[in-house]
Design a protein around this nucleic acid. Structure first.
Lengths: 164, 164
DNA sequence: CAGATATGTCAACATGGCTGACGTAAAATC
DNA sequence: GATTTTACGTCAGCCATGTTGACATATCTG
């Protein structure tokens, strides 16, 4: 029988490879969120506020329903966060013109400043990783992450991250 | 002056590219954790239990301190989760032989079963994404994620995900 | 006008982070 | 051998962020 170490076991290797891919995602996300979290904490905000600010900044005038769909949380959870942001002057709500039931979401100047401050750090981290890894690697990163998203959602996400 | 649409603004493109990289990570992580979360919920466990089980399975006999370092939470937070897992027979603690202050962590057979059940789903998701994206893309995915991890931690993580 | 829709709100609860304080056993050091 | 440090556990209380369920209001649509 062949030496165990030199015998190739593709199934085992494959499992190992997958486990590594899983753990890398865990570690990367841990550190990726750590920096914003600590900045937001200065303002008495948390990760939930960050997510709201990020997506409102990205698509000013979006509806509450749209934000709920992206975040996959209940309206009660979002409401808490959103009303804090409105009360403290980071987010503004305007009635929709076409549909006046809607409360369209906008960042105020104060909100944009906070968004900038947090996202600068986060973008710097991604920029550095992109630079170190190279353009081809970035393409791979995007492909795999897209593949990790629920199939039913993929088209929506693609559209959402591309359209501006 | 040139047409705005056709004029190339590399800085803007770069920001857009980075924002997309950020959002992809958000969406991928959201769905990546969603499936395990719902399985764990059947057992009355949450994401915190999953993480503990995952890393104990991956490195049986690890110390509590090692797990704390990986998870970056306080011992009080981990303790709550760990004692539930021990009480309900998913995790076993054995005194270290070299250092008898240590409580080395092991999954019981019951724990391994749960781990398998959850990780199968997660591995299937990653396997599918890997397959669709191709080997080269996988290399890029790994490179970029590694680059997103805190620099001070990168060497440790690399060693930890490679050594078995 | 009736019903559906977009949003808000109240209340109660669970999970999983946190801090601070204190305790015990074992190892390491002086 | 006494003292200090280390590894771990535990009690208590707080906060952020998720959940469910029920109900209210304004507005749109058929």
């Amino acid at each position: 029988m062949a030496d165990v170490k030199s015998s190739i076991n593709p199934l085992f290797l494959r499992e190992e490879e997958l486990r590594q891919g899983i753990e890398l995602l865990f570690y990367a996300y841990r550190d990726f969120t750590g920096e914003p979290d600590s900045i937001l904490a200065e303002y008495g905000f948390g990760r939930a506020h960050h997510r709201a600010i990020h997506f409102i900044n990205r698509d000013p005038g979006m509806t509450v329903a749209a934000l709920l769909t992206i975040l996959r949380i209940t309206k009660q959870s979002l409401s808490r966060v959103l009303s804090q942001l409105v009360e403290e002057g980071y987010v503004e709500q305007k009635k929709g013109v076409r549909d006046r039931r809607q409360r369209l979401l906008y960042l105020t100047e104060k909100g944009r400043e906070l968004e900038r401050r947090v996202s600068e750090k986060q973008r710097a981290r991604v920029a550095k990783a992109y630079q170190e890894a190279g353009a081809e690697a970035v393409e791979g990163y995007r492909k795999v992450l897209l593949g990790l998203i629920d199939e039913t959602d993929r088209a929506t996400v693609l559209k959402s991250i591309q359209n501006r």
